[in-house]
């Protein structure tokens, strides 16, 4: 555990909580892509199957359980409790275009050809692109609520901090996981355009709206 890992995890946790609170307090999931949230629930489920096979630490186990629990709670709020406010017409990204190639890639490129390892690889690849339905939705409507942009910023920052964590681990522990690093790099790059808008607009007190 190093400072980048810890702040990365906390940033990820903050993102998840911000989104849950936003939906709960406003009693609405307007502007939120349910498809991205389903993908994140799938990501956590397939990655944290190791909860059943290996114990690392109390921190590790509780964070995994919190992430999984919050992911399903978010999906429940969007598709069940506040379904009336869900903006399905704008959430039109075709997720099969992500899930199918990512599944194929996980079978082809992995550390070890076993079910658990392929599912873990699948979750790493899927996480790197799971935000695309949400970004697509924002580009379609041309705007996002400020609280939604805080959510996206924390979520993007988390993987960027993990990149620093992997550099740290390479130098100090000789640890190198190319699958996680390359997928994490892709994931972070996808947020760059958003980071730019966040810094130039949202942090200056303006609402995030895209030019028509």
């Amino acid at each position: 555990m190093n400072v980048f890992r810890l702040t990365g995890d906390l940033s990820h946790l903050a993102a998840i909580i911000i989104l849950l609170l936003k939906i709960w307090k406003s009693r609405s999931c307007a502007g939120i892509s349910g498809k991205s949230q389903i993908l994140f629930a799938v990501v956590f489920t397939t990655r944290y199957l190791d909860l059943l096979t290996s114990f690392i630490s109390l921190y590790n186990t509780s964070m995994k359980l919190i992430y999984i629990g919050c992911a399903y709670a978010t999906v429940y709020l969007i598709y069940m409790k506040f379904r009336a406010t869900y903006d399905g017409n704008h959430d039109s990204f075709r997720v099969e275009f992500l899930v199918v190639p990512v599944g194929g890639l996980a079978v082809l490129i992995n550390h070890n050809f076993s079910l658990m390892e392929i599912l873990w690889t699948f979750s790493i690849y899927l996480e790197s692109v799971a935000i695309l339905p949400q970004l697509f939705m924002i580009s379609k409507t041309g705007e996002a609520e400020t609280i939604t942009t805080h959510y996206l910023f924390c979520l993007g920052l988390y993987r960027a901090l993990y990149l620093l964590n992997w550099i740290w681990r390479y130098y100090f522990e000789g640890f190198l996981d190319m699958i996680a690093i390359l997928a994490g790099l892709v994931q972070t790059i996808l947020y760059c355009d958003f980071f730019y808008l966040y810094v130039t607009k949202v942090l200056k007190g303006k609402k995030l709206s895209l030019p028509a």
Partner: peptide, 10 residues
């Protein structure tokens, strides 16, 4: 330690 040797990351 090249490759995935741990389950410790989230």
């Amino acid at each position: 330690a090249i490759g995935r040797t741990r389950h410790d990351e989230l």
